[in-house]
Amino acid sequence: MDLEVRHLRVVCAIAESGSLTRAAASLRMTQPGVSAQLRRIERILGGTLFERRQAGVAPTALGELVLSRARAILPGIDGLIADTARAARRRSAPARIRLASVGAPLLGHLVLAVREVLPEADVTTRCQYSPLPLLDDLAADRLEAAVLGDSPGCELAPRAEVTLRPLVTEPVFALLPATHPLTARDEVDLARLMEEEWAVPRADSDRTREYWSSVFSLTGRHPHTPYEAEGRQLIEIVRAGLAVSLCQATFIEVPGVVVRPLAGNPLWYRHILAWHREGPLAGHGPEILRRLGEGYDAIRAATPAYAVWRERNPGKALLTE
């Protein structure tokens, strides 16, 4: 009989538990079965691996040698098994593709792009305001792809398991109540906006508030921020005339709110497509990015304030090639 990987796992389980009975439970075997297995292993290796003691078992000198080699070998074997399983998944048509997005208008276009390249896949989606939990899920193979975002000086830290491909860096605009006097202007000075009450997203690990504060400090002022909200709730606070805020340039105006560029373009936001480096979308990443860029162009064309800004700022906010 030759020594097998399963034999090494039995030896390690006995050493880690210090008892044949406990090792049997962890291996889901019977205690007599583990004893018989150990005797076969010892015959193969030519000596006793464990001394029987009143409190359990302890490795012999030969046992220590075998354990040192087994503990060096098994992680590599486990890694090989995991890598080949991922490779097999990539070769086969995936049954499900899990997508996600931060608060950006690109999730629908991401779904359409994935359905174009993998028409047989079952696509699911979810959203989150902070990109960091989504990046964690991508790295842990709990997502296949996601639209993320960050800001200058507060970029997402790269992960070995995840490919990050920037799509575009766009300006951040002012979000105003439709009745606000500043809506009469073509663009809004950030220092003037500091005089208003603000609605802001909660301080989060994505560092958006940190980035905003660093830019605000250049005006010598910080806004009064009595309202903390996100998404629809933030829009409703602005719509009610209670506060002003900031938004992405691709934000599509809804009744009761107005979008205006900020003078001098002091704030920027970057859209990023991310996918698991060894996931089923790895070979389709560039094509999905291209299709996502087409979707972004469609959104931009449907945003009047952004279209005017583009005319006045040629060559800025270009899609990544």
Rank of each mutant, 00 (worst) to 15 (best):
H7N: 04
L20C: 10
T30F: 03
P32V: 14
G33R: 07
E42R: 13
F50S: 11
A55L: 12
E64H: 05
V66F: 00
L74D: 07
P75H: 08
G76H: 11
D78C: 10
D78W: 03
I81F: 03
A85Y: 11
R90K: 11
A93E: 02
A95I: 01
G103P: 01
L106E: 08
E120W: 07
E120N: 00
V123D: 04
T124L: 07
A145G: 11
A146K: 05
A146W: 03
L148T: 08
L148S: 05
G153R: 07
L167A: 09
L167Y: 03
A174T: 13
A174K: 02
A178Y: 13
R185A: 15
V188G: 11
A191E: 05
L193S: 04
M194Q: 02
W198P: 05
A199T: 01
V200E: 04
R209S: 15
E210A: 14
F216Y: 14
Y227P: 03
E236V: 12
V238H: 02
A240F: 13
A263P: 13
R270H: 10
A274C: 03
R277C: 01
R290D: 00
G295D: 09
G295P: 09
G295A: 00
I299K: 05
I299G: 12
A302K: 10
E311S: 15
K316Q: 02
L318R: 14
